[in-house]
Amino acid sequence: MSGDAVLSIRGLSKRYGSGLEALKAVDLDIHRGEIFALLGPNGAGKTTLISAICGIVQPTAGRVSVDGHDHQRDYRQARQRIGLVPQELHTEAFETVRATVSFSRGLFGLPANPGHIEQVLRDLSLWDKRDSQIRELSGGMKRRVMIAKALAHEPQVLFLDEPTAGVDVELRRTLWTQVEALRGRGVTVILTTHYIEEAQELADRIGIIHRGELLLVDDKHRLMRELGRRQLRLHLLEPLAEVPAELADWAPSLEAQGTELVYRFDQRDGERRIPELLARVHALGLDYNDLNTSESSLEDIFVDFVAQRSGA
């Protein structure tokens, strides 16, 4: 177990009653105070992983320790430290915002603390709604109520399972700011997301999960550098039937019915070969009216990576 892991997962597996293996011996250490993004397509096992850690799903095998406390043998200590915002909106309809958040605090074994509840509600811009019934709130507000519930017992580790699904751009920005603020207070945040932009913006480290396997965990910047690719796209005036043999060195591809010549290269040395490629294109008498380069997003990285994996 690494020294500053607030959460340490070893060989965590889950096979559902249906026989489906949703988690395959996952090993993962989460560092204290980091923001960790778990990326994966639908059905990859993100929610299952979180549920198995938090006690909602019974793992088939494996161990989890939270701040040194085993999540089954020492479940009170372990769970006390964890806050969970599930993917789906599950709220009581007739409770008031303040009552439901106070309820969560009690559930986690802490005496009432109206001051803390007020602070949480203010931080999430819910204070004005404190006496409203939850059914009267909008979806985005309900999601913030769920976050407030998860923060009511001052957890050290916060799980956010797709916190910004179905949330408008403005609220998403607000939530991001709030996640940053939590990190500022020393809370470790683990979030799952489909929005690559979100992981790119927020996370310190990123883990990619696919079909129950944690394929890769890396520092965000290194991940982008290592796996990030760029592309040069030439819009040809005359479509080509096939890539001319003279360009084979660059292994470009033809797209859009032969009207676009695309050269993909990695971040490190590919770009040094661009002038040479353009000179060769010119020498071949190929005319183009536009040219652009773009960086692959984390999304492309992810898609490439998964494609490679499932191809292998």
Binding site: C54, G55, I56, Y75, R76, Q77, A78, R79, Q80, I82, L84, P86, E88, H90, T91, E92, S104, L107, F108, G109, K149
Partner: peptide, 14 residues
């Protein structure tokens, strides 16, 4: 039925 059981299950309750 409503899904709010998640909170009971994840709480430090025997």
């Amino acid at each position: 039925f409503s899904g709010t059981i998640y909170e009971i299950l994840s709480a430090p309750l025997s």
